[in-house]
Write a protein that binds this DNA or RNA. Sequence first.
RNA 1: GGUCCUGUGGAGCAGUUGGAGUGCUCGCCGCCCUGUCAAGGCGGAGGUCGCGGGUUCAAGUCCCGUCAGGACCGCCA
Length: 453
Amino acid sequence: MVAPRGSRSPTPLWGRVAIDRGGNTVQRILSHQLPSHLGETVRIAGWVHRRRLLKSVAFLIVRDAAGLTQVVVTDPAVRTQVEALTEETVVEVTGRVVANESAPAGVELTEPRVRPLGAPAVPPPFDLYRPALTASLPTQLDHAPTALRHPTRSAALRISAAAVAGFRAALDARDFVEIHTPKIVGSSTESGANVFTLDYFGRPGYLAQSPQFYKQLMVGVFERVYEVGPVFRAEPHDTVRHLAQYTSLDAELGFVADHRDVMAVLRNTLAGMLATVADRAGAALGTLGVTPPAVPAEIPAVHFTEALKIAGAPADEPDLAPAHERALGEWARRQHGSEFLYVTGYPMAKRPFYTHPDPARPAYSNGFDLLFRGLELVTGGQRLHRYDDYLAALAERGEPVEPYAGYVDAFRHGMPPHGGFAIGLERFVARLTGAANVREVTAFPRDLHRLTP
RNA sequence: GGUCCUGUGGAGCAGUUGGAGUGCUCGCCGCCCUGUCAAGGCGGAGGUCGCGGGUUCAAGUCCCGUCAGGACCGCCA
């Protein structure tokens, strides 16, 4: 039995086993398993990808989870049946596996029996069987349930799944514990943040815009934690890199010397993610023509003040604009041959109150961003870990302690020096695959204008 | 929230300084076709040019409003 490319485990059964009178297996198999069943009668099932009706022969192309199967139809009765099948109709086909050089995959099914598993499908408003999906992004998003069936769209989602698996594997290997924090919260994480409000049994509640506080608290339990989960931002950003809901890959670890320990963990995590993508989503990478970049043993890092100079920004600029980040991405590739670049020491004024300052230059932070091909992919840093520092930080910003009491109080009970980071999954996949818009790599994106499907 | 751009059959586009019948590619329907590979050939159906108003002898084209979508920026992952 042939395992799918990139799979390390034996192929599981995709249907119940059955043996026909001739002793052949007629359990359902997937398209990529056909070569190991030559001469046998097998059963496949999937969606009608395309029909090609010629005079003396008709071809029925069936798409399943693993790929495409060509079914050759010569029997007039079966042909009549096939002529009535629209694209995307779900069918089951039993037939003999025959090697044939003129078949696209080298094998095909002959003498088929075709059984529709549902009514003829209503075809989507675009052609899923073409190499490229030519519908505009809004059209694709409006028809996401079918648009995502196109190999290029599903490939991005497979890469996304592999990236998450790699994130977990990389951190599991370093004794991190996966946690699950509430997505409905009683107060916003960071002052001034736009959060979605909801009615929580008559009280105001909010959709969590970050697991930040909870993952820090859980450092006090496990030392090292991570979470894969949705975060919600009610900010009216209307760009190709913003979503109202996205998947945040969060990690936090205790007993760090400073942010550089966090950066080292992030570097290894990214390498693990890309390795798993190559391992488990090799076919998807091939579909999209993507070669994953190498992660340097040490990702180049520049201080914020240096970054401003490189980007040609005024020295008193408080933050990096997107154009500056693009320039820095170019610089990193040119000077260091790296698709990744750390920018460290962002001004304290531009970071949240829990950010740890640089002891040597207190106006600057021990916080960092990671740019991936010129796009902000990760924010991280060292956090405050002393109760008194939290009180001082809030006071300095003119913020009351009360809304944060449950969080800040925990620091009275002993918290180690710690830090962490959050990777934007959709941005990671978009940059990796070359997608111009994060919506292209999100199954059902939520943004300023889109709440359905 | 600011700036700019775009709305033309099911999909993707063209339509030159306003000027007779809105065109192309793909899909769809019908017929034809030695095995197709994004099949090919012939024929056909399908559009109040987003909506409302205005200018003009004449508006897909110009102006105003409105709705929808997109890009950039602010901000952020």
